[in-house]
Design a protein around this nucleic acid. Structure first.
Lengths: 239, 239
DNA sequence: CAGTGGTCTAGACCACTGG
DNA sequence: CAGTGGTCTAGACCACTGC
């Protein structure tokens, strides 16, 4: 009965630790500032390093921290607002948002082929692009264009610019977009300067012309640094 | 030199394990089926339980698995497509998407007050609602309505329905929406039947009338089971 | 009460960065 | 080469579920 009411908590240590660190980040650290290393922090709070890491993982997931192997843990700047989906029926590459980095012509993955409504072995131009913002690569894209959608190109491999230019001729009728959580595939992770498995926001867009799906793009955004913005008029909400 | 080229990989064990499990899920398991427990699985693959858990964490993050304490790990059904943002300028509660579960009248958090452009101590009606889909609660909402936006109510506490009804009288001009990754606050976690810290998609909507922000809603969706869908016409893409 | 996933520990080694 | 975060281990105990 004399026990000093030492927290009747069922609250996990890492959860409590997270709140403490979160408050400290607000009050005692500036953006970009580097935190003590994990071993020191763990010792300071009297927990195992693994537990401390659980708290840091959460804060990183929320975009509060940035960790770089061999360097340290720094306080992250606020997330970047990235305009996605203008609402207008236009191809999104009119501005130079995306920079092509490659193209292949393989059979699309099963899930994509299903969306395209093509045979699973049909030829699909796959254009790979990246999107930068404030000097940082924030997204990697795979744009799948069935050969049937760009008859002008024939069946041979084509430059990314050629595929996109041909696609731009089509009179876009609409687009459906979905957003979900994913983890970065090895290839995307490299592009985004993250480790494989890093949390990403996957934006899947289906471009349609007269109820036919003419292209599908899968855009993989860094979830730690990005906040996707959707505005229903043309106005763009800057970071 | 007689070593059998045992994988020159730098690939982490948990990453490789994840691929193996992922393939197994595709080929050998049906949705809803229960997996062997973590201790058995770890033993079977010859790794520590913590490592096995790292792989399962990833698969759960991707919505492939569902884990329930005291029960087991099951194969998750495909994510539910949840319509978000019709594109039309209308209040989203015309259909009965959201069910009120409470209301308070406190000062809003600093970040919200900033969006509302109110004093940080101004009275704000905070309506709490939940959204269900296929019998499961998929999202928890906090709708912040400054007293100034609903003058008809006076300053006293009001029922959620009254606040929303009053809000519905306003002639909505537009709305900005952002999507980002977060982790569930304790309160939301309870509502969503998840553990605190579970990954969630946070949709923040700012409702405007004549360039004034009249309300802000923060919608917290389960990231494991939901795929947010945005359609640019009225058509709703079902699950 | 037995079995499950969730938390936690105290180590060890590795991969990477920068001086 | 010293220091950082990333991976991995082999345990232990706890909280929760269902029988």
């Amino acid at each position: 009965m004399g026990t000093t009411q030492l927290e009747a908590v069922q609250e996990p240590k890492y959860w409590h630790l997270k709140s403490v660190l979160s408050d400290a980040l607000d009050s005692e650290f500036a953006v970009g500032e580097i935190l003590p290393n994990e071993r020191d922090l763990a010792a300071r709070f009297g927990v195992a390093r693994a537990t401390l890491r659980q708290a840091l993982d959460q804060l990183e997931l929320e975009g509060r921290l940035q960790r770089r192997r061999g360097v340290g843990t720094t306080v992250a700047p606020p997330r970047i607002g990235v305009p996605v989906g203008s609402g207008s029926h236009a191809w999104p590459d009119e501005q130079e948002l995306w920079e092509p980095v490659g193209v292949t012509r393989e059979a699309a993955p099963a899930s994509i082929a299903r969306m395209l409504g093509t045979d699973r072995s049909a030829h699909v131009h796959t254009v790979r692009r990246v999107r930068a913002r404030h000097g940082q690569t924030v997204a990697a894209q795979l744009m799948y264009v069935p050969a049937a959608s760009v008859p002008g190109l024939g069946d041979a491999p084509a430059a990314p610019e050629a595929v996109l230019a041909e696609l731009g001729r089509l009179d876009l009728a609409g687009q459906d977009r979905t957003v979900e959580l994913g983890s970065a595939r090895a290839e995307d992770a490299r592009e985004l300067d993250r480790l494989p498995g890093a949390p990403v926001l996957v934006v899947t867009t289906r471009y349609t012309v007269e109820d036919r799906t003419v292209a599908v793009s899968v855009d993989t955004y860094r979830a730690d640094t990005c906040r996707l913005t959707f505005s229903d008029d043309g106005s763009v909400i800057a970071s």
